[in-house]
């Protein structure tokens, strides 16, 4: 379970994140929605310690992450797939995956790789080739697979659907739903594509100008016409 309490952060005098609180429950998908520039990426980056929090706390299963460096988070069970995916294109697909396991200070086993290749059969074909040649959808599968190899309790995903064909988005989101159901993974899903995100999420939080404006069940949010028009754009 990931708990964010009264988190504020920013890049200059203007705050990009203003007193945001959020709970992502165990075995649930929490969607973080909002227009471009709302502060969604900043929220994830502050949770990971890439952006310094001005105030507030983040805790993972009750353990405060204050003072924990970004590099130590995977070993504690927090995986963050950044905006733009973060594929290391100069490395092979398999090397990218191995890095995922290394993050939790383990050696990659053959069984690890097989599990990921079973989830994403296209990656198996690409294994020894450079990640450079992957398509957008394949890249998204690679980074999710890589994150899973660190055996996370909490997975932060920043706009996984960006730039993907709708069919691929459905495929990836269904897979995500399956992982949450089967492995009890906790997911924080940042999306501008609110319709798709709400279709698989349990709860949703809407950000605007760095503040939480609404939080509710995914179904309720999806049904609220005023909200959809004002913030979610569908």
């Amino acid at each position: 379970m990931l708990t964010v309490d009264n988190l504020s952060a920013g890049y200059g005098p203007v705050p990009a994140l203003d007193d945001v609180s959020l709970t992502a429950g165990h075995g649930e998908i929490t969607a973080v929605l909002g227009a471009n520039g709302a502060g969604k990426t900043t929220l994830l980056r502050t949770i990971s310690g890439l952006v310094r929090a001005r105030s507030g706390t983040v805790s993972l299963d009750g353990r405060p992450l204050t003072g924990v460096s970004t590099e130590d988070l995977p070993a504690l069970g927090l995986a963050h797939v950044p905006e733009g995916r973060g594929v290391l294109a100069e490395l092979t697909v398999e090397e990218n995956l191995r890095l995922g396991a290394l993050g939790s200070r383990r050696k990659t086993t053959a069984a690890d790789l097989r599990r990921i290749y079973d989830l994403f059969p296209v990656l198996a074909e690409r294994g020894t080739g450079l990640a450079h040649v992957l398509s957008g959808g394949e890249r998204q599968m690679l980074v999710i697979g890589r994150a899973l190899l660190s055996r996370p309790k909490v997975l932060l995903l920043d706009e996984p659907s960006l730039g993907l064909a709708p069919k691929v988005v459905v495929q990836i989101f269904e897979l995500l739903r399956g992982l949450v159901r089967d492995d009890g993974l906790t997911v924080v899903l940042v999306e501008q594509n609110a319709r798709s995100a709400l279709s698989i999420a349990d709860h949703g939080v809407v950000l605007n100008l760095g503040k939480v404006v609404v939080r509710d069940d995914a179904a309720t949010l999806a049904a609220d016409d005023g909200l959809r028009h004002a913030y979610l754009g569908f």
Partner: peptide, 24 residues
């Protein structure tokens, strides 16, 4: 080696490497 892999990863993208637990 794993160490070599970590070094190459840091050279290519420091931020992503840090998110993957590499002590850049």
């Amino acid at each position: 080696t794993d160490l070599g892999l970590r070094m190459r990863a840091s050279a290519f993208n420091q931020e992503v490497s840090r998110l993957l637990g590499v002590k850049v």
